[in-house]
Design a protein around this nucleic acid. Structure first.
Lengths: 222, 222
DNA sequence: AATTATTTTTAGATAAACCTAAATTAAGGC
DNA sequence: GCCTTAATTTAGGTTTATCTAAAAATAATT
């Protein structure tokens, strides 16, 4: 129970490094962190030194950054807080799917274990957030995440929508229009060779969706 | 709708200045701010200059600080956020009376109007927080607050407990023991001249409470 | 392989929010 | 009304998190 206290900035960097690392497997470049956080590379280098000293990441000059075991644990707690707040905002405060991220980004930095544990209980220990992303439990354990997109299905195959990767408003409006949400069943009717578009059966209606969109909708094959 | 964005520090100073000013009426000293925030007077002077420049307070060198009209409005919004979160923590997350303050102190700085308005609605527009303090509405309007304490009652007079001023755990435990909460009826049976203690009838039981305790429990006379 | 381009790091600066020590002003006691 | 004390402010310093500009290392291209 090494309860390290991090600043808001440190938390944001660590979370970003975790997210860029593909669950801790990949080495993350200084530039990629810089881009995602909109902070100059020079500043990123500074923070990398700081997090290295705290043993949350490993870093070799000019060779990129790897998140440590401990770093992963801490990052998952930040992600846990973020996603629990997203559930709260969506289910209890009636926020839209595309409005929750920004506010959760602030709320996640309020670090009280009692707050998060009671919130978790209050929300009845949700397993996924409104985008379908899994919520780590108190111990940092995370459920399996579907990595298959609609675009990975073959003709006549079926799937259940499990996760939405994109977070912006336009995408949200499209999903709304198509009545796609977590749990919706989809069946591939046809694949258009020309640009990779898909003809998909959703709610008993055939619709054409672009390859890009299809890639952003993860599913469980059935 | 001049929506000034303040840092967490600035918000804390402004809130403290408002609280020390008796609803904006009194002039606040640098030292009193220093004491309440546990920050050196020299640092307080720095921040006073900053808030002055933003026209949230008026300040004359060596002569103290007065909160401005605009400062009051901003302060009341911070207080609104704080108290709404207290209601949430107490009613929904089952926090104890003495545990809510600290966490609300962090949550109050998450400044999203949508968040606060929806939270307000979700909590059914509460008028008071768990300590009995009034919650300013969206426009900064605050209900009248009882300024009479149990210690102000005369023998045989009755009151309804409306507000608890003290926030610490020991005091909370005492109230618990005496079964005093917001809404409890009290009747003065006797006043002990020696130290100002009071003999009070609470839940059909006579109990002796010290003058200090009696001063921390505000009531509505009936 | 040499040169160019890109990435990363270093060096030095800035703003915010603190601090300590010293100087200034106001207030209280006699 | 002077003098001591207390309150307040100024001056200068520190830490955190950022920046720009320049240097160093790595990667890409011819």
């Amino acid at each position: 129970m090494t309860n390290i206290i991090l600043s808001k900035s440190e938390e944001n960097y660590l979370k970003s490094i975790y997210n860029l690392s593909d669950s801790g497997n990949k080495i993350v470049t200084t530039n990629s962190i810089s881009k995602i956080l909109n902070i100059e590379p020079a500043s990123v280098t500074d923070m990398i030194k700081k997090l290295s000293k705290k043993k949350l990441i490993y870093h070799e000059k000019y060779k990129g950054t790897k998140i440590s075991k401990n770093g992963i644990i801490v990052a998952l707690q930040i992600i846990r807080r973020h996603r629990l707040w997203e559930v709260f905002l969506y289910e209890k405060l009636n926020f839209n799917w595309d409005e929750i991220h920004e506010v959760a980004e602030e709320l996640e930095h309020v670090s009280s274990d009692q707050l998060i544990d009671n919130l978790d209980k209050y929300l009845k220990y949700p397993k996924i957030d409104p985008h379908g992303d899994p919520i780590p439990n108190k111990l940092g354990e995370v459920d399996f995440v579907d990595k298959i997109s609609i675009s990975d299905l073959k003709i006549k195959e079926k799937g259940i929508v499990s996760r939405i990767v994109n977070e912006d408003e336009g995408f949200f409006n499209l999903l709304n229009k198509l009545k796609i949400e977590i749990g919706t069943e989809v069946t591939i009717l046809d694949k258009i060779d020309y640009d990779g578009s898909l003809d998909v059966l959703i709610n008993n209606k055939s619709v054409i969706i672009s390859k890009e969109i299809a890639e952003n909708i993860k599913i469980t094959k059935i």
